[in-house]
Design a binder for these strands. Structure first.
Lengths: 205, 205
DNA sequence: TGACAATTTGAACAACTGGTAGAAACATAC
DNA sequence: GTATGTTTCTACCAGTTGTTCAAATTGTCA
């Protein structure tokens, strides 16, 4: 019944469009945002270009003026997430701060990205098998670089004697990232805690 | 070219099969296992029944003798994961142990499931939107029950004064589960650590 | 206004999808 | 051997998919 309602509203849009004789203004950004939402909800393989176009009040053919193909949309989602994640983390890692403070800020940053870009983030950690060619390899590399920042901060802390050496830095990194990434699966902005509060609890852990 | 090779090998199989006049023996278990692997790799929506049949050296039509439809396969994967997860955790939660020991065992158990049933586990946390009807609701409920066990153990520990009250039990649960679930994304059985060792490190965290 | 570029449409396409029906191959018991 | 029930194969259907493209529409600016 939800699907029927959605379909009905689209028909409404279409008829009102033909009345006012106005067409929709598409942008690459809007396409990527709508697609991220649908990919997160239904998966890349199960989302059709028709659905994406429908949500934007346009037709499938129009999409191809702004994007190369379906995978191209996915590529843009990955670039979006990466550009929002990498730079701030690199700054934190390079800042002249004690390791504990660095780690805290890094976790807050990552949790913020996970909470804010929720749909894109969900896609990011789900649909990488659908990326092909050199771009797929690039993403793997950049993901590893990203993880490496956390690892280095933890190693720094261990060398300085503020973090326990009982836990391997790699495993600790995966554990921390796992906690944060899992956020995008359950976090609701209108819940009892903000993502900053949650990040603070993670830091304490 | 990969697809062509695969197609070629199938033709080979078919001809050799008709030569030796032997057909494949299918079981529901084998179908579900093969499907879990493909779903984990390519996603539910992007995996066709032809591919599943191909991997088993059979044809699509034969699958339908053992399963009701495509979603039915997904249902079996979910039941597999749940039956392997629920009972042991319930036992741990009910055992007369100190909360710290309970939590440790629960984490080890969950990490073990995440590491062992890796493909099924990946599917479990990815493809729930493709479950429909009452079964979908049942899964949500059983997932929540599962999480509730962890929450209760933590609350127990907080009441006994062994765990810090600074962290909300719900958030702590999501954090711990996040760490473990993330395992299925990166854990390799031939890596430097066993899943027990990793679980032990998580417990220490 | 008119001309030219930017944008959208709508139809067509080949390939593929989940699902079905009935014939064919098999195993088992007699 | 035949008869019977189980399992797999082949061939097909109707619907959907990503992608292309000429034609139609809109925006822009002289």
């Amino acid at each position: 019944m939800v699907a029927e309602d959605a379909a009905a509203s689209v028909i409404e849009k279409k008829t009102s469009r033909s009345k006012t004789s106005r067409r929709v203004r598409l942008t690459q950004k809007a396409i990527v945002a709508a697609a991220a939402d649908l990919f997160a909800r239904n998966g890349f393989g199960a989302t059709s270009l028709d659905e994406i176009a429908e949500r934007l009040g346009a037709t499938k053919g129009a999409l191809y003026y702004h994007i190369k193909n379906k995978e191209d949309i996915l590529r843009h989602i990955y670039l979006m997430v990466l550009t929002a994640s990498e730079e701030p983390l690199a700054e934190i890692a390079a800042a002249p701060l004690p390791p504990a403070e660095k780690l805290g800020r890094a976790i807050v940053h990552h949790a913020t990205v996970a909470a804010n870009r929720s749909p894109a983030m969900t896609v990011f950690y789900r649909e990488h098998p659908h990326l092909t060619g050199p771009f797929a390899r690039e993403i793997v590399v950049r993901k590893k670089v990203y993880e490496r920042y956390f690892e280095q901060i933890i190693e720094e802390g261990q060398a300085a004697g503020v973090f326990s050496r009982a836990i391997d830095a790699k495993i600790a990194t995966f554990g921390l990232l796992g906690m944060c990434n899992w956020l995008s699966q359950w976090y609701q902005p209108d819940g009892p805690y903000t993502h900053q509060q949650i990040a603070a609890m993670f830091v304490r852990m």
